[in-house]
């Protein structure tokens, strides 16, 4: 996996890592920049009746059919409201590309690995399985999203 080797390399040789950042409600998330395939504006979507409710629908990404997961619902946050159009953050996963619907796309940040910490134990169960760790930036916390677990809907369901 290109992503994995990329992550490993940065771990070994560098003291900083790059994250693509985005917002979901008031949470500030980061995904390893190498995991991100592309970022798109809101796309027309085909809803999937009977699908788990975190699945917003299917989008046509240049001939490839990509499942879109609503991050608000995935993290059990209050819904976005109709006036806010979500953005598609298309991430590569073992199972192919998956689109995460987020509120807003942030910058790509270089983050000092020394500021990393494991997520707090008392994290909301809906988010616990999905957040790998936290980088303490100067003015806010960057939550590292575990994309593989995010797209695995079995994670966090039992909680």
């Amino acid at each position: 996996m290109a992503t994995d080797t990329g992550t490993m390399k940065t771990d070994v040789t560098q003291t900083s890592r790059q994250f693509s950042t985005f917002f979901v409600a008031d949470l500030f998330f980061g995904v390893d920049v190498l995991c991100v395939q592309e970022v798109l504006r809101f796309q027309q979507m085909t809803s999937v009746p009977q699908a788990p409710e975190v699945i917003e629908g299917l989008i046509n990404l240049r001939g490839q059919i990509v499942t879109a997961i609503d991050m608000r619902r995935r993290l059990r946050l209050p819904s976005r409201g109709d006036d806010l159009m979500p953005m598609n953050m298309v991430v590569r996963t073992e199972d192919g590309a998956v689109s995460l619907l987020v509120d807003e796309i942030g910058d790509v940040l270089d983050v000092d690995v020394a500021t990393y910490e494991r997520p707090p134990e008392n994290l909301d169960p809906a988010a616990r399985g999905l957040i790998r760790g936290v980088y303490k930036l100067r003015d806010r916390l960057l939550l590292v999203l575990d994309t593989e677990r995010t797209v695995d809907l079995a994670v966090g369901r039992a909680a």
């Binding site: 979507m45 059919i65 809907l153």
Partner: peptide, 22 residues
Amino acid sequence: LGKQLKGLTVYAGATIMGDGRV
């Protein structure tokens, strides 16, 4: 379909229609 939807036995897959929608 992606693995998130594999459990749905009512669908055999998806396709892209003439208007570009799924």
